[in-house]
């Protein structure tokens, strides 16, 4: 498949995926018990709203239409670039998202860097010293890392580095200092998964004949490992990375709450609790879009990593 065909194909499937995601979330939201209008008004007015108040709220927000009609209206608006407005503040959903998104992306990228910085050397080392103390230690570390819940690690780090030692700010967002602890919290869990993956992938690659060739040239061990072997070992790792993105976003929600970062995750949780459906819908759609887009990027990066790969899934 050539690039254009491939991208066209991916675009087509992406649209289907996004439509599916929106239908499912829309459906789920309306299945949740309780009348959103009532819940929202109760919170806003801080008292039980009258029937008339509820009536007018429903009318202004188009809640009187049957659900499929509401959905179609929403989709039509989205196609026009309008994600709707928040039930609470009359702010456009897109504005809310645009404000929150950079914080989340910043967190995701930083965590990924932390994860790779830990996982690559540890994975490579434990593959090279297979069966040694280093290997067991790193595998144990990976096990602990995988089993440790994000929120627990987050609070632990706050306790040690922010409250006791006072090195870093407790919470909030905006400065690099405030990014460190959340990134470590989110990154370690991922690092644990990646370490195992890199280790097993490296073990396989180290048995390949081209590694011997590289050594027989007289190359330094480090170059053999990090240039010849790692490059090959990363191919399967990148695949998993694409899939792992989902759990990264998942984790971001928890971490943002722990560290009080007003990112997408926090926005989403608040919106769910407040029954702020347009915001929930918007965030879901954007997140799904990011997910799909990143996976296309992952696919494209294969070709850089492994020239044998032809787009469309076949290996030449």
């Amino acid at each position: 498949m050539d690039d254009a065909t491939y991208l066209l194909h991916r675009l087509g499937t992406s649209i289907i995926v996004l439509l599916g995601v929106s239908v499912v979330t829309y459906g789920l939201l309306f299945l949740t018990p309780g009348d959103p209008a009532e819940v929202i008004l109760t919170q806003q007015l801080d008292r039980q709203p009258s029937a008339a108040e509820i009536e007018s709220f429903r009318a202004t927000h188009g809640m009187d239409d049957p659900i499929p009609v509401q959905y179609v209206n929403w989709v039509t608006d989205v196609l026009r670039g309008d994600l709707g407005t928040s039930y609470y503040s009359d702010t456009a959903v897109s504005t809310l998202i645009v404000d929150a998104l950079p914080l989340t992306i910043e967190l995701a990228v930083a965590s990924l860097l932390v994860a790779l910085a830990i996982a690559i050397p540890t994975g490579v080392l434990s593959a090279v010293h297979r069966g040694s103390a280093i290997d067991y230690a790193s595998q144990l570390g990976a096990l602990v890392g995988v089993s440790m819940p994000n929120f627990w690690l987050g609070y632990l780090l706050i306790l040690v580095f922010a409250l006791t030692l006072g090195f870093l700010p407790v919470a909030g967002a905006g400065s690099y200092g405030q990014l460190v602890l959340p990134a470590i919290t989110l990154g370690t869990g991922m690092a644990a998964v990646l370490t195992r993956l890199i280790r097993s992938s490296m073990l396989e690659v180290l048995d390949e004949a081209y590694v011997d060739t590289a050594r027989s040239k007289g190359l330094r061990k480090r170059i053999v490992l990090y240039k010849h072997a790692l490059r090959n070992a990363l191919v399967p790792v990148v695949t998993i990375l694409g899939v792992q993105l989902g759990s990264l976003l998942n984790g971001a929600v928890v971490v943002e709450i722990v560290f009080q970062r007003p990112g997408l995750g926090m926005l989403l949780v608040d919106a769910v609790f407040e029954r702020n459906y347009p915001v929930v819908q918007g965030i879901t759609l954007v997140t799904a879009g990011i997910f799909v887009g990143t996976n296309v990027l992952v696919d494209l990066s294969y070709r850089y990593l492994d020239p044998r790969v032809e787009l469309g899934g076949e290996t030449a």
């Binding site: 004949a209 081209y210 011997d212 060739t213 590289a214 010849h228 020239p307």
Partner: peptide, 16 residues
Amino acid sequence: SMVFQNSMETLNPVLD
């Protein structure tokens, strides 16, 4: 220098 058996596998597939 050494030329290994099965040269197809002795060249690194991801480097030109």
